[in-house]
Amino acid sequence: MRTYALTVFAQSGEKLLDESFTAENNDEAKKIGQVRLEEEGYSEHTHRCVSPEAKLILFHR
């Protein structure tokens, strides 16, 4: 399992969500990240999800 980081920002730049989770691969992490964003109601906020190698796998501005 690999550890991914999911971060959500307010328009002011304040972090609204900053958490880590584990997934088998980038595709699974992208799905988990999208579900988590929807659960928290942050789908339309600026967000990013990065892999352990700092590869951007999810991004919305």
Rank of each mutant, 00 (worst) to 15 (best):
T3F: 09
T3C: 09
T3A: 11
T3M: 12
T3W: 08
A5Y: 07
A5N: 14
L6F: 05
V8W: 02
V8A: 13
V8E: 00
V8G: 05
F9A: 03
F9D: 05
F9K: 11
A10C: 05
A10T: 00
Q11P: 02
Q11R: 13
E14R: 14
E14Y: 11
E14D: 14
K15D: 03
L17N: 01
L17P: 02
L17M: 11
D18R: 11
E19A: 09
S20A: 13
S20M: 12
S20K: 15
T22Q: 15
T22Y: 04
A23P: 07
E24T: 11
N25P: 01
N26I: 03
N26L: 01
N26A: 12
N26V: 00
N26S: 11
D27C: 05
D27S: 08
A29N: 05
K30I: 06
K30H: 00
K30D: 04
K30L: 06
I32E: 04
G33P: 01
G33N: 03
V35M: 05
R36L: 13
L37M: 08
L37P: 09
L37I: 06
E38N: 11
E38C: 00
E40V: 06
G41H: 05
G41Y: 06
Y42V: 02
Y42N: 04
S43W: 04
H45I: 00
H45N: 14
H47M: 08
C49M: 10
C49L: 08
S51L: 06
P52G: 10
P52H: 10
P52R: 09
E53H: 08
A54S: 15
A54D: 15
K55C: 00
K55P: 01
K55M: 08
K55L: 10
L56T: 09
L56H: 01
I57D: 07
I57T: 06
I57A: 10
L58G: 05
L58Q: 05
F59K: 13
F59Q: 12
F59A: 13
H60I: 02
R61V: 08
R61G: 12
